[in-house]
């Protein structure tokens, strides 16, 4: 039974409560749809992450391998030196995409392979091993950026999913039952009052008739 604290059992109040029930029900239904849609989005992105990871990790291994060779053939000091000299110009274009009111990042991933001459390290020290290592790392970056975009997207969607789930559960298990209990309480109380009223009227009528 509902606690009758703070509610006045009037017709007006009952009407207002019924409107609140309708709003909460609509909120629940729509947020549950949003939750379902977020689950679709989340698993879609997880599947893409799985594919992107396999590819990127393979590339990364190749890059590390080329780098190890470079250290061995070119010498550690020389490789570090070339890395210091290399032209640092790499940028990535990032925009955003909306997924149901959530902003997820979109990386514009273009191939970033550079010409050996464009890399900027002094050519007297270069070797094919150095070029190879540089090229491999340029190649791996595209895949890693794509992966970063997807993983960040998954994180953001998961957060929203958790939040939406909490809201849906609160509506379903707390707010709606509470409101419905109040509606029930007021309508019962109003019925009761009506019956009291009715019997009072009957008594008055009886008294009036007795007087005649």
């Amino acid at each position: 039974m509902a606690k009758a604290v703070g509610i006045t059992p009037t017709r007006m109040e009952l009407l207002r409560l019924r409107q609140r029930v309708a709003l909460a029900q609509k909120g629940h239904d729509l947020l549950r749809e949003k939750m379902d849609a977020l689950v679709i989005e989340f698993f879609g992105i997880v599947r893409r992450i799985r594919d992107a990871r396999v590819k990127a990790m393979r590339r990364l291994e190749a890059a590390y391998h080329a780098l190890s060779l470079c250290f061995a053939l070119q010498g550690t000091i020389e490789t570090h030196q070339a890395a210091r000299e290399a032209r640092k110009e790499l940028v990535v274009d990032i925009s955003t995409r909306h997924v149901m009111g959530i902003l997820v990042p979109v990386f514009d991933v273009r191939p970033i392979e550079r010409h050996a001459l464009a890399r900027g390290y002094s050519l007297y020290a270069t070797s094919s091993a150095l070029d190879e290592a540089s090229r491999e790392f340029e190649k791996v970056l595209g895949g890693l950026l794509k992966l970063a975009e997807l993983e960040e997207g998954a994180r953001v969607i998961a957060l929203e999913l958790e939040k939406t789930k909490r809201r849906v559960n609160a509506l379903k298990y707390v707010i709606l039952p509470g409101l419905k209990a109040m509606v029930k309480f007021i309508s019962m109380r109003l019925d009761e009052m009506e019956r009291e009223n009715f019997s009072r009227l009957k008594r008055i009528k009886a008294m009036l008739e007795a007087r005649e």
């Binding site: 890059a63 590390y64 780098l67 250290f71 490789t79 570090h80 070339a82 890395a83 210091r84 290399a86 032209r87 640092k88 110009e89 790499l90 940028v91 990535v92 274009d93 990032i94 925009s95 970033i112 550079r114 890399r119 390290y121 150095l130 290592a133 540089s134 491999e136 790392f137 340029e138 791996v140 970056l141 950026l145």
Partner: peptide
């Protein structure tokens, strides 16, 4: 909008990515 890429790692890994720019 263009953004920079950052790499935080051990010296060797950093060297590889620095080579790529």
């Amino acid at each position: 909008m263009s953004f920079k890429i950052a790499v935080v790692a051990d010296g060797e890994t950093v060297t590889g990515f620095a080579l790529a720019g």
